[in-house]
Design a protein around this nucleic acid. Structure first.
Length: 425
RNA sequence: GUGGGUGUAGCUCAGUUGGAUAGAGCAUCAGGUUGUGGCCCUGAGGGUCGUGGGUUCAAGUCCCAUCACCCACCCCA
């Protein structure tokens, strides 16, 4: 026997039974996006490696150790997208969307790839819903993106959400604050974890959300980033707060929220659940310099990425029953001997007729006995079974069995479609 | 990249101090006399015991290695 090839580590098949939930979540995603005025964009699943190096940032874990990078046959370095923003920014520039009325508001839905060790809620191929809005620095847009995220979750039925918001300022504020933070930790550097000592040099803000207890203890009484925001950043953040207060979204300000991607400026936010930990459900923020980094033109932007696997896990943990509806199935069964294949032909004709009329119809394809056909119809979850043999054909009638009630009645062959329509509407 | 746990049928698991053709339930398929599902009964198919080595007269069982999966850390969605 040939050895079985399995799906690569960190990937999995979504089978019937599970995929319906995805369809539902995707449906809500599209509905909410439409309500908020975001339009779908489909960008490539792979891009030039350099796009992510420049966009996501060379110092990030994503670029340093998590990218699926390979050479294509033309010798180009290609990377499977680890996130959506960089690609959307590229598409915005490449397609001159800056010449459209601003802001340009886009959403995407699809797989992302990161070379991580898989665990609960973390796959090498995972799926994100994301939105990006370009061309406006209005705090009301920050509010809108956060509100969109919260709305999406609540429409799905999630509760116990924690929405954390912060501002990391512009590069100027950040470098001032970074300096202050370095000074503050200078005297007890040895108390920081190894990782943080490194962070202090590369990206000082990241020290703030370190999970090491010793680091957190040291940070007690550390400088407040909000004291280092310039006037513009400070008032921007204040206005975001004011707008958010109008929305009813239960957010909290977390001064230590930093986020791992280099490109964020000013507003950053993250959504998690309060109870059992599925990891964060969504993260996002403003990136007023990213477009410039990628394309040389200064355009403000803001976005969010929502992890769909984690949303599904949270829904499961919270016992949310999704309203999955499935079409009622009509099964066609034949009874008795069929030496000339007449029953089989009649069954096919009926099948075609039912499907043409819009019903989900099935017939036996396994050459099963009537008993086995009934059993199969039961397993399919068929609502009705149409049964006939040669005798019924001759008399121009059929048996129609209601599988739920376990009752059946005789009806004229010609009236079947109309009768089923009256039953199912 | 680091640490922990688990690998026996499609699934969930038994398998004694090492001992003969490796079992059960569920699932699948077929039957339980003429043409009727769910319950019940009978039967069938399905396993290189993750893989490779070692110890032993004898390994599913003991030892080593390796791989895969799960979980956690880092980080993130």
């Amino acid at each position: 026997m040939v050895t079985l090839i399995k799906a690569p580590r960190g990937t999995k098949d979504l089978l019937p039974g599970e995929i319906e939930k995805w369809h539902y979540v995707e449906k809500i995603a599209r509905e909410v996006s439409e309500i908020y005025g975001y339009h779908e964009i489909r960008i490539p699943i792979f891009e030039h490696t350099e796009l992510f190096q420049r966009g996501v940032g060379d110092t990030t874990d994503i670029v340093q150790k998590e990218m699926y990078t390979f050479q294509d046959r033309g010798g180009r370095s290609i990377t499977l997208r680890p996130e959506g923003t960089a690609g959307v920014v590229r598409a915005y520039l490449e397609n001159h969307l800056n010449s459209q009325p601003q802001p340009v508001k886009l959403y995407y839905l699809g797989p992302m790839f990161r070379y991580d060790r898989p665990q609960a809620g973390r796959m090498r191929q995972f799926h994100q819903l994301g939105i990006e809005a370009f061309g406006s620095n209005d705090p009301a847009l920050d509010m809108e993106v956060i509100c969109y995220t919260y709305d999406f979750f609540t429409k799905l039925g999630l509760t116990n959400l924690r929405v954390m918001v912060n501002s990391v300022g512009c590069p100027q504020c950040r470098s001032n604050y970074g300096r202050a933070l370095k000074e503050f930790t200078e005297s007890h550097r040895e108390l920081l974890c190894e990782n943080c000592r490194d962070r202090l040099e590369r990206n000082p803000l990241r020290v703030l959300d370190c999970k090491e207890e010793s680091c957190q203890r040291l940070l007690d009484g550390s400088p407040d980033i909000h004291d280092y925001l310039c006037n513009d950043c400070s008032s921007h953040f204040q206005q975001v707060n004011e707008y958010l207060n109008l929305t009813g979204v239960p957010f909290e300000i977390n001064k230590k929220l930093v986020r791992g991607l280099d490109y964020y400026t000013q507003t950053v936010f993250e959504v998690t659940t309060v109870g059992p930990d599925e990891g964060s459900l969504a993260g996002g923020g403003r990136y007023n310099n990213l477009v410039e980094t990628i394309g040389g033109m200064s355009v403000p932007g803001i976005g969010v990425a929502i992890g769909l696997e984690r949303v599904l896990i949270a829904l499961e943990n919270q016992g949310v029953q999704l309203p999955l509806e499935q079409k009622k199935i009509i099964y066609i069964a034949t009874a008795g001997e069929d030496p000339e294949g007449k029953l089989a032909r009649e069954a096919v004709l009926l099948l075609l007729e039912l499907r043409k009329a819009g019903f989900a119809a099935e017939k036996d394809l396994m050459g099963r006995s009537l008993k086995a056909q009934m059993k199969f119809a039961g397993r399919l979850g068929a609502s009705y079974v149409v049964i006939f043999g040669l005798e019924e054909i001759q008399q121009g009638r059929l048996l129609l069995r209601d599988m739920l009630k376990g009752e059946q009645l005789e009806i004229p062959r010609d009236g079947l479609v109309e009768y089923l329509k009256s039953l199912l509407n």
